[in-house]
């Protein structure tokens, strides 16, 4: 059976919209049951989406409400079908359940999504920044974050400058 048909029948209440573009199907869902739906998609015989190809966030600032979407790109190696599941995450409740316990590979993807968008993944074993320094302020891939970075220097870089200055003043022969 077609994956989309199964999802439509099983989770009628959770689906917000379904769209197709160039033969790729994406299903937009409410975020509450994303974990259960993911588990169903992974384990249900006939669907068996065993490979989480990708997980990323998208920021629709000023375009759509709710603001964020988390996109799960699933693929089934035995059946060779794929689906994109998108969960809507509002800005004032910026959290969603982690799927790391279903796909171990989601671990770093979710950390990156947290790092770049500030979306909190509940139940994640180790939710820290991954690409940016740990004391970085702001979430770089949000649309209201400037391309050229913030006005002030990152504190870590200031520390380095300060240290360089102190070493220059050090009296090596004294």
């Amino acid at each position: 059976m077609e994956p989309l048909q199964v999802i439509r029948e099983e989770f009628t209440d959770d689906i917000i919209s379904v769209s197709e573009f160039r033969g790729q199907i994406s299903v937009t869902l409410r975020k509450d049951n994303v974990f259960e739906i993911s588990r169903f998609l992974r384990d249900e015989p006939g669907l068996n989406f065993n490979l989480l190809r990708d997980l990323c966030g998208v920021d629709y600032l000023g375009i759509k409400e709710p603001r964020f979407e988390v996109v799960y790109n699933l693929y089934s190696i035995p059946y060779r079908h794929s689906i994109m599941v998108k969960a809507q995450v509002p800005e004032n409740d910026c959290r969603i359940k982690s799927v790391t316990s279903l796909w171990a590979g989601a671990n770093w993807h979710e950390r990156e999504c947290f790092d770049m968008f500030g979306i909190v993944f509940e139940g994640h074993p180790d939710l820290r920044r991954i690409l940016m320094p740990e004391d970085w302020e702001g979430y770089p891939l949000r649309k209201d974050y400037p391309v050229k970075g913030p006005e002030k220097e990152w504190s870590g870089f200031l520390n380095v400058l300060d240290k360089a200055k102190r070493f220059r003043e050090f009296d090596w022969h004294g």
Partner: peptide, 21 residues
């Protein structure tokens, strides 16, 4: 055209995917 697309290709390291909105 408006839309979103994911295309994966096999690079030497594995699957390199580009997802565009």
């Amino acid at each position: 055209p408006e839309g979103e697309i994911y295309v994966g290709t096999e690079v030497p390291k594995g699957e390199l995917g580009f997802y565009f909105v």
